[in-house]
């Protein structure tokens, strides 16, 4: 068994597609129109055959209160691995991305948390080399 899909609940799929591709740098893997919405997945250019991220509409009535409660407490529900959190923080800040938590050294890892503009906080995490 392998992990094939992970999802983020987004308030607007078109806006999400722009943010996750143009701002973050992921690539579209699937974009299949399905009535009012589409089935959209993106992958990392570093792992095009890896886990796909589904940009899922947050239309379920429970989705938005859930997202808002997480955001209020600064909780990222999704985390991406990066080689250099400080460099990503600088790159994304220059593109106008808003960070709720700047790069923070937590011992074995360095993390930061940003706003995906679609109602979610996303964590980026760098594992420090083990001595």
């Amino acid at each position: 068994m392998r992990i094939h899909l992970a999802g983020v609940l987004v308030d607007d799929q078109e806006k999400a597609l722009r943010f996750y591709t143009e701002t973050l740098g992921f690539q579209v893997k699937h974009n299949i129109p399905l009535g009012r919405h589409a089935w959209i997945t993106v992958v990392s250019p570093e792992a095009p055959e890896g886990t796909e991220l589904v940009l899922e509409p947050d239309e379920h009535p429970a989705a938005r209160p859930f997202k808002e409660a997480l955001v209020k407490d600064g909780i990222p529900y999704t985390s991406f691995a990066v080689d250099d959190v400080a460099a990503e923080h600088e790159r994304l800040t220059a593109k106008g991305v808003r960070f709720v938590q700047p790069p923070t050294d937590l011992g074995p890892v360095i993390t930061a948390v940003f706003d995906d503009t679609c109602g979610n906080l996303i964590q980026i995490q760098e594992e420090k080399p083990q001595p």
Partner: peptide, 14 residues
Amino acid sequence: GQSLFELCSRLIMK
């Protein structure tokens, strides 16, 4: 200026 999440992360990790 920390969120609850950041504070909890720091408390457990540090």
